[in-house]
């Protein structure tokens, strides 16, 4: 009897490891940026050409930075949740419009005349928000994805929860699910709102 117990135990341990491995999403790479200051940037806003936004403008507030693009299918899936969340007015959401034109595989950038990109980006992104709702306090345009690289963006949508001191406290990779919002983002945001800035 005893001689079967050891292989059985080894097998069960293996099963547990494999079961945990199966449940984990290999696309979710833990971000080294959690616990670090949100990278600084200065980008034009979607609404007003020439008007710029920087994360420093949000100092003293707990806020969400949501990376999106009109070509991103998962963003559309996540969008109603963001719109409903914004209506409750819990946290300001800033949109980082990521490679609106250059990220769209169907657009040949060689055919886009130089200098017309910002106008075209504003037109496309604006139309998308008009159609699906605009949950953002404001959106900024990261046309070439440079800021996205600084934030370690590798699959839109991604969302960062940033505290009053400008430190990234949580990163959601992929669409925000109702569970992630209720169980992770909101409790953490409530706790962060109580911290001194």
């Amino acid at each position: 009897m005893k001689r079967f117990l050891i292989p059985l135990a080894v097998f069960l341990v293996l099963v547990v490891f494999l079961a945990v491995g199966l449940k984990r999403d290999p696309r979710e790479v833990p971000s080294p940026l959690v616990g670090k200051p949100a990278p600084e940037f200065r980008l034009d806003t979607l609404a007003t050409p020439g008007k710029q936004f920087s994360p420093a403008d949000m100092r003293g507030q707990v806020w969400l930075l949501n990376v999106w693009a009109s070509w991103c299918v998962s963003c559309r899936a996540e969008h109603p949740l963001l719109v409903a969340f914004a209506k409750q007015g819990g946290l300001p959401i800033v949109g980082l419009n990521y490679k609106e034109l250059r990220g769209d595989g169907e657009i040949d950038m060689k055919k886009v005349p130089a200098g017309e990109e910002p106008a075209l980006v504003r037109q496309r992104a604006g139309a998308w928000l008009a159609r699906h709702g605009d949950p953002y306090a404001l959106s900024v345009l990261d046309m070439d994805g440079r800021v996205g690289i600084d934030y370690g963006v590798y699959g839109v949508p991604e969302t960062y929860l940033i505290d009053k001191k400008g430190i990234i406290r949580f990163k959601q990779i992929g669409p925000i699910t109702p569970e992630a919002l209720e169980q992770k983002i909101l409790p953490l945001a409530r706790q962060l709102a109580g911290e001194a800035s």
Binding site: V29, P30, S31, P32, I149, Y151, G152, Y154
Partner: peptide, 8 residues
């Protein structure tokens, strides 16, 4: 790159 995307 590690600072942005981690050891992965």
């Amino acid at each position: 790159l590690v600072a942005r995307y981690g050891d992965f």
